[in-house]
């Protein structure tokens, strides 16, 4: 089996985990990532430990990147895309096009594989079209923006003036569970991520007041029940999604919502609003699926995880929203499916 090779499209945690699982079973891997570095969205996430680990799994991404980069059976091509993939007599013939890098000019790399894995991941929902002023009001940020602040700057400040926020709001389900957008899915990861982020902010600055607007808190399993109970003691939960946000003359953000029809509309001001933007399918996924003989997407995601009888596989959030733990399990399952495919067992 040592002459077998797999092409993996996408270097997020799904693609990298698949690559490692295959390489450890002595299958060669070419992994192509369009960004300048591998790691995907998961390596932008920050550690949420509040003294002890809170099991977010973000550190696994960095470990996976380190392990994949060190494995001799994996060739990582960054700033690169699969320009051409042709399926002929059981083999995938491909041409990778790599943009110029600091130490070498642009190049094309031809290759051949017995299987291809589509691990192109998700596109974070862009909330610019939602009435929360994202992109116009500097203190309205997304969950990924918040992760970036925690990871790169080590703390959270209001982007408008660099001050520490006094009253922060998290709005869940932005771009998820939204029939007006045709997004009839729950993104799965955002409730847990918001609870952990909110608790971390509270842990660092107990005087910060946090309100979390939600439809249903989605996390479950493991010790979630106790984490949720602790969070309820520290954070104000409001079961409503604000209709809109306006910036006041003082530069604060006024949110209005209807908690119950009896109570009517409520308004309050905050100085930082975090939008929990969900997962959406990547736009190029339909074309990629078509070129690999995979069933076309339904509701944007690729629900079938492989092409019948051929060597094209789909892994991770290209199939639908999933968190880090599920993505890892999905990636290893796919690696095993590929090994069986190479052995002629399906």
């Amino acid at each position: 089996m040592t002459d077998q090779r797999v092409l993996i499209i996408g270097g997020g945690i799904g693609g990298l985990t698949t690559a490692l699982a295959l390489a450890r079973r002595r299958i060669q891997v070419d992994l192509v990532e369009q960004a300048a570095a591998v790691g995907g969205h998961a390596v932008r996430l920050s550690c949420k430990a509040t003294g002890s680990c809170v099991k977010c799994g973000a550190c696994l991404a960095d470990q996976t990147v380190a392990a994949a980069a060190a494995h001799p059976g994996i060739r990582l091509f960054t700033a690169c895309r699969a320009a051409e993939i042709r399926y002929a007599s059981g083999r995938y013939h491909y041409l990778l096009a790599q943009a110029p890098q600091h130490d070498r000019p642009a190049r094309t790399i031809p290759g051949e594989a017995g299987a291809v894995v589509l691990a192109s991941g998700f596109q974070p929902f862009d909330p610019s079209g939602k009435p929360y002023g994202y992109g116009r009001y500097p203190d309205v940020v997304t969950n990924l923006d918040l992760e970036g602040m925690l990871r790169e700057a080590g703390g959270v400040r209001r982007p408008s003036n660099g001050a520490a926020p006094e009253r922060a709001a998290f709005i869940q389900c932005v771009g998820s569970r939204d029939a007006s957008l045709g997004h009839l899915w729950c993104s799965g990861f955002c409730c847990a991520a918001a609870l952990r982020a909110a608790r971390l902010l509270k842990h660092r600055r107990p005087e910060l007041a946090i309100t979390l607007f939600y439809i249903d808190i989605q996390t479950f399993g493991r010790d979630f029940e106790s984490v949720y109970a602790q969070a309820r003691a520290e954070i104000r939960f409001v079961r409503a999604i604000p209709a809109d946000a306006f910036q006041t003359e003082e530069g604060r953000l006024r949110l209005s919502w209807v908690e119950t029809s009896a109570q009517g509309s409520v308004e309050e001001e905050f100085d930082l609003v975090v939008l929990s933007a969900g997962m959406t399918p990547r736009p190029e996924i339909a074309a990629l699926a078509g070129s690999l003989g995979l069933s076309p997407p339904t509701a944007g995601f690729l629900t079938a995880n492989r092409s019948p009888g051929e060597g094209a596989f789909v892994v991770g959030t290209a199939r639908g929203p999933m968190g880090i733990a599920d993505t890892i399990a999905d990636a290893r399952r796919t690696a095993w499916d590929i090994i069986r495919f190479f052995e002629g067992r399906g």
Binding site: G57, L60, R222, D223, E225, A325, A329
Partner: peptide
Amino acid sequence: TDAGGFVQGDNVHRLPV
């Protein structure tokens, strides 16, 4: 085991199985 008694410690390094 984890808090619910499932047969895997609640430690991210055990994922998946």
